[in-house]
């Protein structure tokens, strides 16, 4: 049972870390738009530049 002395704080610290991370992410607006960023990443790199028309 002595192992609890290490495991418990470890578990609590890990849990706390995730809660903190979630809190931080929500506060930063990471959850404000769930649709667009997921779609945006699908765009191919080579489509990211416009083939400028020669004037």
């Amino acid at each position: 049972m002595e192992i609890l002395i290490i495991l418990l704080p470890l578990a609590l610290a890990l849990g706390g870390l995730f809660v903190w991370a979630f809190w931080w992410a929500v506060g930063k607006g990471q959850y404000d738009d769930l649709e667009t960023p997921g779609q945006r990443i699908l765009l191919e790199d080579n489509q990211r530049t416009v083939q400028h028309k020669k004037d």
Partner: peptide, 17 residues
């Protein structure tokens, strides 16, 4: 919206632990 997400997150984490 953000605060309700936070409420859900806290409740979920606590319930799991």
């Amino acid at each position: 919206e953000r605060s309700s997400l936070k409420r859900i997150g806290i409740a979920g984490a606590a319930a799991g632990n």
